[in-house]
Design a protein around this nucleic acid. Structure first.
Lengths: 234, 234
DNA sequence: CGTAGTAACTGACTGCCAGTCATTTTAATG
DNA sequence: CATTAAAATGACTGGCAGTCAGTTACTACG
């Protein structure tokens, strides 16, 4: 009975095609302005069919967002699994997240909505669990590296790895969100370069989480984080 | 001609009443689920009248949000103008922001939308400027205090006050947003208490922005920021 | 083949809501 | 009381998410 299996494959393929169409529309229009009619048109299907595969516009939106999470995971994984020193791994992971933000800005933007509780209400239970699961996967990667850093004595042992993770992640996230929405505003009206802000913030936080011995060991990593020069203008 | 003036007052009063009604509805339903019909009903006016006073639902939403900004300003101002040492002021301001978050959570939530570029498009130019102006007012208060700290030698001089402001503000904001949306999630599945995270994050950042002399001077301020105990469970 | 049965798909339709505008109400003025 | 301007109204429009009765395509079996 290869037919059942072929049908499964075709169904999966349809799901993907709908996702491709939705991605195009959401990327160009955003959640609000995108319409299911337009997604249907791009997918060359009727609107009704979309609802056979996804429960709502919001579910579809999250399904696209999950692709982004997958990409982020695939960028973090090789770093986490590499043989480099933990502190280096952490620096590389923050850089990777910034790279993700730059190269996959549209996915990054979708993460906004996941933060908004109003949005949560419009999403099906399953999709929500699916997302938190994917989220968890990425998160565990981060925490594992931090734990390793603590075990090796490079990171302080008086703060739990999860707490460290939340601190570093949240602040990087917040600054990148600002880059996305207000980069020019900060640049022109305040002469603040948000790329510098991100670098400085990451450096300060990471250093304050490191042990004294690690600071000495990895001092060279942070030396050229140019704070003085750019600021001196003012 | 006192009549003109009375009419002006009445008009202003109407505007306020509409705002009160809108606030009630937005606070209970959120932006999406709230309808202009409902606001009209609560305001005991017809829907058309709302549009004589506010250009759109989103404009009305931002008008309510501005009240929140005003409250925040009124909480920051006395601290900024007080005669206490700068480092103490900064600590108090972070505490004040947390207090704002707790007591005026509904306003805090509205700030989310202001961050979303998709939302911006639906707002009139005037209202947008009005908001950024109010935002600026609060911001200047923060930057002024930081500048003072630099001048007095308590804060490092190699990072601009604006950059420091963005770093501290963004990270506090991000963590409080998480408190609002995922407090239980973090508590139950990860045994992370976000109140601790906020405190630790603020402490770490503030300390890394302080000069060596200031760290010695104000060491007592940060001593009891209990990191070890709570975490030791795990 | 042909036909019964099922899975996939369709698009007209419903309900909801933001925003509009012709009409009505209110109130100031002479 | 008549005139006029300002304020308020609510029926209406257009657009969209989501539905469902009906159609089509595909498979299995006699």
């Amino acid at each position: 009975m290869g037919i059942q299996e072929r049908k499964e494959r075709e169904k999966e393929h349809r799901r993907e095609e709908i996702l491709n169409a939705a991605q195009k529309v959401f990327f160009t229009k955003g959640l609000q302005a995108a319409t299911m009619d337009e997604v249907a048109e791009v997918a060359e299907l009727s609107k009704g069919t979309l609802y056979l595969y996804y429960k709502s516009k919001e579910d579809l939106y999250l399904a696209v967002m999950m692709r982004g999470m997958g990409i982020l995971y695939s960028m973090f994984e090789p770093i986490a699994l590499s043989q480099e020193p933990t502190v280096v791994k952490l620096v590389k992971m923050t850089e990777a997240y910034y790279e993700f933000f730059q190269k996959h800005c549209n996915y990054f933007r979708m993460f906004y909505f996941f933060q908004n509780p109003q949005f949560h209400k419009q999403v099906s239970e399953e999709m929500m669990q699916c997302c938190t699961g994917e989220n968890q996967r990425v998160w565990e990667l981060v925490v594992r590296v931090i734990q390793q850093g603590i075990d090796e004595g490079d990171l302080r042992s008086d703060i739990s790895p999860m707490v460290m993770g939340v601190i570093v992640w949240s602040s990087a996230n917040a600054i990148m969100m600002r880059m996305d929405t207000q980069r020019e505003y900060f640049q022109t009206t305040m002469n603040v370069n948000l790329e510098d802000v991100l670098k400085i913030s990451n450096t300060l936080l990471l250093q304050s989480l490191m042990t004294e011995s690690a600071k000495r060991k990895y001092a060279s990593l942070f030396q050229p984080a140019g704070m003085k020069e750019r600021v001196a203008v003012n």
